[in-house]
């Protein structure tokens, strides 16, 4: 089973994300960089798929990013993935979701695969887009927000989360799935894993290397024109009272008379 994982390096969710002076990008100097949490599920699931199929085939990590993203790929290799490919090109640093999908799809065209696993979204841009767009560009089926999957007879059966429950869908391989929290519990990289990862193949490629020029990715169709912080919530007031019942009464009175939502 040949599995490709689409992986992005993102600021950790504990990070405070500041806006740059120009108001168009975020400050990344003090940010702790990690594998996008949804992509961690993807790495774990890829390893499980490979293991479930007798360990044959390989798990390839594919990422688009700056050279710093090598760290995230090494972490995935330390978890057990076999090889990594980073598309790093200054022409690709500020691309939008659709451009990223075009780059990934172009890189995948020269790779063998049965299954592609991606995070449902990256927790920086929150676009929920790249996985589905890559599948469309490769003309393969995609099942998004997957909580559970099983593969048999060249078909993948997935439980996909929807509002209020679950839908079970089957797709022929090759296919792409995106992960939902709950799919698995990602393993930690072991010390021997970290040592081994240093020797695993990791290629850094330019857009030209994957046969793309700027015409291939097109111009960005979404442009950030401003970034701002959400309105600061002013700390409100503490509801006090002698007893719990007093507090409950005072709160409901405030919700009713001041906030007018009860």
């Amino acid at each position: 089973m040949e599995v490709i994982v689409l992986l992005k390096q993102v600021p950790s969710t504990e990070s405070f994300v500041g806006i740059s002076e120009n108001g168009l990008s975020v400050k990344t100097d003090d940010v702790k960089w990690v594998i996008n949490p949804y992509d961690e599920f993807a790495v774990e699931e890829a390893l499980r798929v490979k293991e479930a199929h007798g360990g044959s085939g390989s798990v390839t990590i594919l990422s688009v990013g700056t050279e710093k993203a090598v760290e995230a790929i090494r972490t995935a290799l330390a978890m057990g993935a076999d090889k990594g490919i980073l598309i790093s090109d200054s022409a690709a640093y500020n691309c939008d979701g659709l451009q990223t999908a075009k780059i990934l799809a172009a890189a995948i065209k020269s790779l063998p695969f049965d299954l592609i696993i991606a995070g449902q979204r990256a927790v920086d841009g929150d676009n929920y887009m790249v996985g589905s767009a890559v599948a469309e560009l490769l003309k393969i089926p995609a099942i998004t927000m997957v909580m559970k999957e099983s593969i048999a007879d060249r078909k993948i059966t997935c439980s996909r989360t929807v509002e209020g429950g679950m839908v079970v869908i089957e797709a022929p391989l090759p296919a792409l799935i995106t992960t939902q929290r709950g799919l698995n519990e990602p393993r930690y990289a072991s010390l021997p894993g970290i040592m081994k990862a240093k020797k695993k193949p990791l290629e850094i490629k330019s857009l030209k290397d994957i046969g793309l020029d700027s015409a291939g990715t097109g111009a960005p169709k979404t442009k950030i024109i401003s970034l701002k912080y959400p309105p600061e919530r002013k700390g409100g007031r503490m509801i006090t009272g002698e007893t719990a019942a007093d507090k409950a009464r005072a709160l409901v009175k405030a919700l009713h008379e001041e906030a007018k939502i009860v």
């Binding site: 405070f16 994300v17 975020v26 841009g125 111009a219 979404t222 950030i224 970034l227 701002k228 912080y229």
Partner: peptide, 17 residues
């Protein structure tokens, strides 16, 4: 206007095409 970084930032985006 759309949230990014889980709502820590609000972005104004122009759509072209």
């Amino acid at each position: 206007t759309r949230p990014m970084y889980g709502g820590k930032i609000l972005a104004e985006i122009m759509l072209e095409g």
